[in-house]
Amino acid sequence: MLAADQYLMVGVVLFGIGVIGFLTRRNVIVLLMCIELMINGAGLAFVSFCRQTGSLDGQVFVLFAMVIAAVEIAVALSIVLLVFRNRATLDVDEMEVLKW
């Protein structure tokens, strides 16, 4: 069996790529996808720790994380649709109604 550490590193790198994208991109749909990347990186870390320690708790957490990601994306995308209908933009820099 391959050491689960390598899977852990892939998870960390996925999370890091998600953070980089989240802090550098400005399209709100890409930002949501970067959140998905981060959730998946964390999930991969959970599952690989699970395999290392022989406990099932991490897999249960990943299951819950998936459900919550689905809920979050459904709500977030409908908010994106509403914002686009009202302001005709997807750029987070231009969504500044609440700024002041």
Binding site: M33, G43, R51
Partner: peptide, 24 residues
């Protein structure tokens, strides 16, 4: 980007299967 993310998610599913988490 959306299509690339689909590939990422499938690869992660592949790694779940190899980490003895077939249901996930």
């Amino acid at each position: 980007s959306v299509l690339s993310l689909i590939v990422t998610l499938l690869a992660v599913a592949w790694m779940y299967a190899m980490l003895s988490a077939p249901f996930l």
